[in-house]
Design a protein around this nucleic acid. Structure first.
Lengths: 216, 216
DNA sequence: GGCGTCCCCCTACGAAAGTAGGGGATGGAC
DNA sequence: GTCCATCCCCTACTTTCGTAGGGGGACGCC
């Protein structure tokens, strides 16, 4: 039996959701709260498996509440349930520890499915939330990475070794020790690396190496 | 009418999917292909809105095919449809440009929904794929960032300015020029920054600044 | 007023970093 | 075998970094 809590400032929404969830034989609603503060209280008093949390609420918003809920001793899973699909909502909710992000216009059956999935350790994203997260994934991983990688395979294996350590903030002396070579040799390697990567100093080399995913 | 293509090496799967999609009044299947190479051919010959692409295929796998499809003049949207939910599959498919990731055990109605959503510019992720993407999001964005940010607000505004440029690979002389101050002053600032951030050289400072999201 | 913080500036010095140009050894490619 | 790339090493030199420790001015706070 999945023990759930409903957090929403609108009493009607709470009623509707309670009805929906209690109608599922595997789910029971054990708590409700009209705002974030009450939600924390309830979560400490009851053992909650999954909390459905609205974003816009008085006193304490759903994002903050999610962060708090997730740092409790036995943190409930959180599904963010909102009317608006603003992108900051999505990012912030996920960063706060939500495992689900749904809009309130979602098909009731989907909501039930989400509760089951999230309780089981999986995740559920509304299509527009998925869209935003994918876009974000592209934004953080793709752009520089490809250009950087192209330059990176102009390096010899040993030069790559040196760059890897350089990209961790090691000095030439550190690198020499860790790779068992003279510092003069390290300098020679670094110099060639800078030329190959078309940068003028080691900071730029380090940043480029990071972008390319070196030393992950 | 959404024009779709089905790419799968299993003839039975193609048959089943064709049946399913053609049964939807808003969708028509205009092409099929048993492997990636054929898929590229088909996509250049027909105008495709959405391609459902398997991952494991002979000759050219679905990930590579997705990359190619997405770089065509009029790139079709891609939904990756696979039997296995290996995490590399998810990352690679999305990196290659897929907007949907589903497992073959997905409810048929969900597949139809995915085609509509993806055609409309939205995205659709299977719960386990969503799980992996969220985990990845946490991995890339959270851990160092918080610790780094804490140290970062020990800096004065001017020190932050200096660090921002430093984190772009500028030399002290560059920074001095861009901030209209003497290099000696820059050095003093940098020295204080290193102390405040508890690092020993500028490379480490630059990396930490990056982690904290400075100069995004 | 006095105190603290931030900012800009300085000199002087030691320590890293980077350049230039060399030598010698290995090992695979042809 | 010869050629070529890679690797390790070197000296000598210049440039850049970073530290240490100083001074002076602006601002806000109590």
């Amino acid at each position: 039996m999945i023990r759930t809590m409903i957090v929403d400032d609108d009493a009607l929404v709470r009623l509707g959701l309670t009805d929906l969830l209690d109608g599922d034989p595997g789910i029971e609603v054990v708590a409700q709260a009209p705002d974030g503060l009450k939600a924390i209280e309830q979560a400490t008093a009851h053992r909650i498996d999954v909390a459905l949390v609205d974003v816009r609420m008085p006193r304490m918003d759903g994002i903050t509440a999610t962060t708090r809920l997730r740092s409790l001793p036995h943190p409930p899973k959180v599904i963010t349930l909102t009317t608006f699909d603003l992108d900051e909502y999505v990012y912030n909710a996920l960063a706060a520890g939500a495992d689900g992000f749904l809009l309130k216009d979602t098909d009731p059956a989907e909501i039930l499915r989400a509760v089951h999935l999230v309780a089981a350790g999986s995740a559920m994203l509304h299509p527009t939330a998925a869209r935003r997260l994918i876009d974000r994934y592209h934004a953080t991983n793709q752009p520089e990475a490809t250009a950087a990688k192209a330059r990176l395979d102009r390096l010899t294996p040993r030069e790559r070794d040196v760059l890897t350590l350089l990209a961790q903030g090691d000095t030439n002396a550190d690198i020499a020790t860790r790779l068992a070579m003279r510092e003069s040799t390290v300098k020679a390697h670094v110099s060639r690396v800078l030329t190959a990567l078309e940068v003028t100093n080691r900071v730029q080399a380090a940043l480029l190496a990071r972008d390319a995913g070196l030393a992950a």
